[in-house]
């Protein structure tokens, strides 16, 4: 089987592949640059944070978001690859949701950008399924003993976005200010949104 199991450095191999594909007019480096720049600079967890903050402050949007995540997210102007079917799960008093992709690293790009390295790591992908409470504790999140943990495995069809608990002390905050509190990790379910 061909592939980087041999000794060719991946940087060289990637350069060779890109040259071959450019020659065949299968890829346009300028189009690639645009995709890369988009995911390096423009699409990231701030999109998801805006979605979360709006759900916290707009009850009708909250309802729409839980009923049809993809449509409600699109309504905010966020869509594209890996955003075709996003399901939103809300943290609750008796249940804590956490997301993984055990097989690769499916992730809702339009709202969170590209996944962080720990999400792709074999240790996270295998262990969070078997011992989520221990893994979350190692990541700095102690889930109360009386709160059950549900682990959601992303698939080819479904990507998940977690709607975190709104922190206490933010009752009079508007959506824009709230969005600044929401972290990527809270939207994957490995953290809570901290109180201001």
């Amino acid at each position: 089987m061909s592939g980087p199991t041999d000794r060719i450095p991946p940087a060289l191999r990637t350069e060779a592949l890109e040259q071959l594909l450019v020659e065949r007019e299968l890829v346009d480096p300028a189009v690639m640059d645009k995709f890369i720049a988009t995911y390096e600079r423009d699409v990231g967890p701030m999109n998801g944070a805006k979605v979360v903050a709006r759900a916290w402050t707009d009850p009708a949007y909250h309802e729409r978001l839980l009923a049809d995540g993809t449509a409600a997210i699109k309504e905010m102007g966020f869509g594209g690859p890996q955003g075709e079917h996003i399901v939103v799960l809300e943290q609750a008093a008796d249940v804590h949701h956490v997301v993984v992709c055990t097989l690769c690293s499916c992730y809702p790009w339009p709202v969170l950008g590209l996944p962080p390295s720990w999400y792709k790591d074999p240790a996270y992908r295998s262990r969070v399924v078997r011992e989520p409470r221990a893994v979350l504790a190692e990541m700095g999140l102690d889930v109360p003993a009386d709160r059950r943990i549900e682990v959601w495995d992303s698939s080819a069809e479904v990507r998940y976005l977690i709607l975190p608990r709104r922190p206490a002390g933010t009752e009079d905050w508007d959506a824009e200010r709230l969005a600044g509190l929401v972290t990527r990790d809270a939207m994957v379910g490995v953290a809570e949104v901290g109180a201001p």
């Binding site: 940087a11 890829v27 995709f35 890369i36 701030m46 390295s117 990790d185």
Partner: peptide, 28 residues
């Protein structure tokens, strides 16, 4: 290197070739 970060803002690609490999797959 694979440590769970506590906040947003981690580098998306560790090395430039990773971004090229990403860009090729998405473009194609």
């Amino acid at each position: 290197a694979a440590a769970p970060p506590r906040a947003n803002g981690e580098l998306v690609f560790a090395e430039p070739w990773e971004s090229r490999a990403f860009g090729m797959a998405v473009s194609l």
